[in-house]
Design a protein around this nucleic acid. Structure first.
Lengths: 112, 112
DNA sequence: CAGAATCCAAATTGATACTG
DNA sequence: CAGTATCAATTTGGATTCTG
């Protein structure tokens, strides 16, 4: 299993509780910190900050300070970030297709 | 963002630290508990048990007690489990392709 | 607005020992 | 072999307060 190492590394990125949610929010272009905060239900500003910094560190998002009045901070996907987003698309489709089935399986399992 | 809910649910499955690693180990057919334990480096037997139970509960793996001597327990992917495995394949390819780039980005970031 | 810093509660996890 | 049970340690995360 020579690629087990790769699999684990990528899990450090996508396995993060919020990372893929943030990537998804950025798929249609740049978003501001507050926009992200508002649109990702339940995320604290602490976690959003941490998630964004990790993604920035990994070269998946770019952080830009926009010097208008009032100034704000904009985040957008890098080229690599967009390829990541594309690579996760099948997973989202899978979830939309199978989640009902999973709910059923789970309910049956819990009945026993 | 009407599918945010789906995205979050699926993260509850794939976002698990070990789940995808287990699914990957099962891609070529059934494996026994101990085989999985050995081949997934660093997993404790506690975590393997918990991960397998979650996957079983969600209808992604099947647990079978094999009544030979000595008896053992076999795990294999369900049909749905195999579709999940296929849906995660692009992500693995992505990781193999981009991980070096991520390492670079990370190193540069940390230098500052 | 976009964070940083601090504090604290809760959830995860590993190590270990035990069992049918 | 394939777990379960328990405990301790670490991590994680939320709430809150403060700042350029």
């Amino acid at each position: 299993m020579q690629d087990a190492c790769e699999a684990r590394e990528v899990l450090g990125i996508v396995g993060d509780k919020w990372a893929l949610l943030v990537v998804r929010m950025l798929k249609d272009g740049p978003r501001r910190f507050t926009e992200l905060k508002r649109s990702i239900d339940g995320i604290s500003q602490r976690m959003l900050t941490a998630t964004l910094r990790d993604l920035e560190r990994d070269g998946i998002v770019i952080r830009t300070v926009v010097e208008v009045m009032p100034p704000h901070v904009s985040y957008e996907l890098t080229t690599m970030g967009r390829t990541l987003r594309e690579a996760t698309a099948p997973l989202l489709e899978w979830s939309i297709e199978h989640l009902p089935h999973i709910a059923t399986a789970r309910a049956e399992y819990d009945d026993r």
